[in-house]
Amino acid sequence: MFHYPVEKVTSVLADIIRQNVSADVWQWMEERTVSFTTAQFNTAFALLPRKTGKAIVRFTDEQDRSLQSARPGFVIRGWTIDRLARVWLLLQLDASEKESYFQTIENLFPAAEMQELVALYSALPVLAYPEMWTKRCAEGIRSNIGDVLQAIMCNNPYPSENLSEAAWNQLVLKAFFTEKPIHQINGLDKRCNAELAGVLSDYAHERWAAGRPVNPQLWRCAGKFINEKNFPDIERIAFSENAVEREAAALACWDSNYSPAKDLLNQNKELKAAIETGELTWQTVAGKATLVHP
């Protein structure tokens, strides 16, 4: 069912929630989990923010470490308390009956408002039967609602662990399209693939042709797949007037085994040295990346 120690996560979340809501509210939440019909569960899920409020959750570093060791990649930083409480509530469902467990959660999606969708998609990495939610996750990527997309794309380990290559590539491409913080995509480097590198290169060409700016982080997915076809792209940004684009080119070449790319990097001793000392990384590029006009 669960692919991680769920009791550990549930207990840390319970501690965090207790610290962030009043005793009355916590008691109300606990009462909701003793025994409940689906209708009661749905109602509790919908009206949780009325009880918990919507303040940003506070928690200790120790609690964060406990969560990370129990469920790596499950990051709750910046979450509001209602979002966290909803995820906790979902973890109270009995997962032993696979079909009814799936239906109860799946039925929440079509009637969900924005913040409910955010909570639901945030819960994917801690739900039972991870393989069962891949279609739902792919459907979420089709959303046009910014916060919902961000809940799926950023600081969420579920997609990189479970999505097919096609759905994963769609997520990354859409993240660029909708200008999400790319460096917060969990597993981005691990799941780079040749198909994605090609699609992103085409995307960059379209943007250039339209005279529209391109995010330099796009080349993060290209490094391992530089070949004779996309090497001219790398050359183009290596000689860009924009410093961040030149840095992106250097980093892409650093990741590459394609010898013309290695030669290109060797021409720029300064950037190469910065990469070697760790001064220049994709994280530092992310920190200053803006869209670069051609």
């Binding site: 910014g146 961000q150 200008e179 999400k180 995010n215 990346a289 803006t290 869209l291």
Partner: peptide, 16 residues
């Protein structure tokens, strides 16, 4: 909210 949560300095388009 949009400004702080969505873009985090990653784009010229601010504020959602």
């Amino acid at each position: 909210i949009d400004q702080s949560q969505k873009f985090e300095g990653n784009t010229v388009l601010r504020g959602g």
